[in-house]
């Protein structure tokens, strides 16, 4: 497509104009087909359906666990992730019946860890940290990175050079090493700090994706048409560019989320994420690996939760990215 920004002058190629108008004349074939939720669901292969199901379960579990603690004071049917089940119970004046490093049983579905805490409850609760980090990084990425990228891809010029140079420099660091260096600045590492740091570091990648898409969209005929009828640039940005960049960014979010979950897991595993005893899958793995000679199952459960989540995010992300590509090529 050779239409450039400057071609809104009177020399605008006639044949192209007629093409555009004839395409507009037939609204039935250009109107985007409404993609209903049911249609997307039907086009999913089985593995993507299963992956989505797992992700929904994890998200639901994490929110349920958080509600349990924050609103219901632990009265919902899920055990307290931080109670040692062999500890002293004040009400009865006796010690609990739990044992450290138990196997699977009806009272402790996935057994207990080294200090007799219920592993199932810890895994369900552990999803919360991953969920928050993913949501914060996606919000930062889409709102700041997506906006910046769309803007500079549309406006070009010096702003673009400056923004993209900054992005390139940040992406020139090995991601985990930069994250470690940033995290090491903070003395207190709580969920707020961790998600903020990961959120800020997510911005460059989103900016790059958004800019590439914005560049392609800015040279499309409907943007040229909008310019030709004298639409304000800010309106073009918000009504034409960003709505078209957004679906690609949302598809990218899934893939980015998989990366973020691994990164947070790695930080937790190194003991540099949220402080103990808050359960995360990474710190559960790190604690359980010390007893790997006695019991491998306690390492396996959180590892399985983490791996399945990453695998599911990859599957769903690939699915949406492929969908996006196919739709993009039809346009």
């Amino acid at each position: 497509m050779a239409i450039t920004n400057s071609s809104t002058t009177p020399e605008f190629p006639r044949d192209r104009l007629s093409n555009v108008s004839s395409a507009v004349a037939g609204p039935t074939d250009i109107a985007p087909k409404r993609t209903t939720f049911r249609k997307i669901l039907r086009s999913m292969p089985l593995r993507v359906k299963l992956s989505s199901l797992w992700l929904v379960l994890i998200v639901f579990g994490a929110i349920y666990a958080k509600l349990d603690v924050a609103w219901f004071g632990g009265s919902l049917p899920l055990q307290d992730p931080n109670i040692q089940t062999n500890g002293f119970i004040r009400e009865t004046g006796q010690f609990g019946t739990g044992q450290p490093i138990e196997g699977m049983s009806t009272s402790h579905w996935l057994g207990t860890d080294a200090i007799a805490r219920d592993t199932f409850a810890r895994i369900v609760h552990g999803g919360w940290v991953s969920l928050v980090v993913v949501v914060v990084s996606a919000c930062c990425g889409i709102m700041i990175g997506g906006f910046l990228g769309s803007l500079v891809g549309f406006v070009r010029g010096r702003v673009e050079t400056f923004v993209m140079a900054t992005v390139d420099v940040i992406l020139a660091f090995p991601a985990l090493v930069l994250l470690l260096a940033m995290v090491s600045i903070f003395e207190v590492r709580n969920l707020f700090v961790i998600s903020a740091v990961i959120g800020v570091l997510s911005i460059p990648a989103y900016t790059r994706v958004a800019r590439a898409n914005s560049l392609a969209i800015s040279s499309r005929e409907f943007v040229t048409a909008a310019r030709a009828i004298g639409t304000k640039p800010s309106r073009i940005l918000f009504r034409e560019i960003i709505p078209n960049v957004l679906p690609t960014l949302l598809a990218y979010t899934m893939v980015a989320a998989a990366f973020v979950v691994v990164v947070e897991g790695s930080l937790s595993f190194l003991g540099l994420s949220v402080q103990l005893p808050t359960p995360t899958w990474g710190n559960m793995i790190n604690q359980a690996r010390r007893d790997i000679k006695i019991n491998v199952a306690q390492v396996m459960w959180p590892s399985l939760a983490l791996t399945l989540t990453v695998l599911s995010l990859n599957q769903v992300g690939d699915f949406f990215q492929q969908r996006r590509e196919i739709r993009g090529s039809n346009l």
Partner: peptide
């Protein structure tokens, strides 16, 4: 390959330790 891509390397490391040294 899909599965290998999704397992974080520290988990692979732990299970390699479990298999080959424990």
């Amino acid at each position: 390959v899909q599965v290998a891509l999704s397992i974080p390397n520290f988990i692979i490391g732990i299970f390699l330790i479990w298999l080959f040294s424990v």
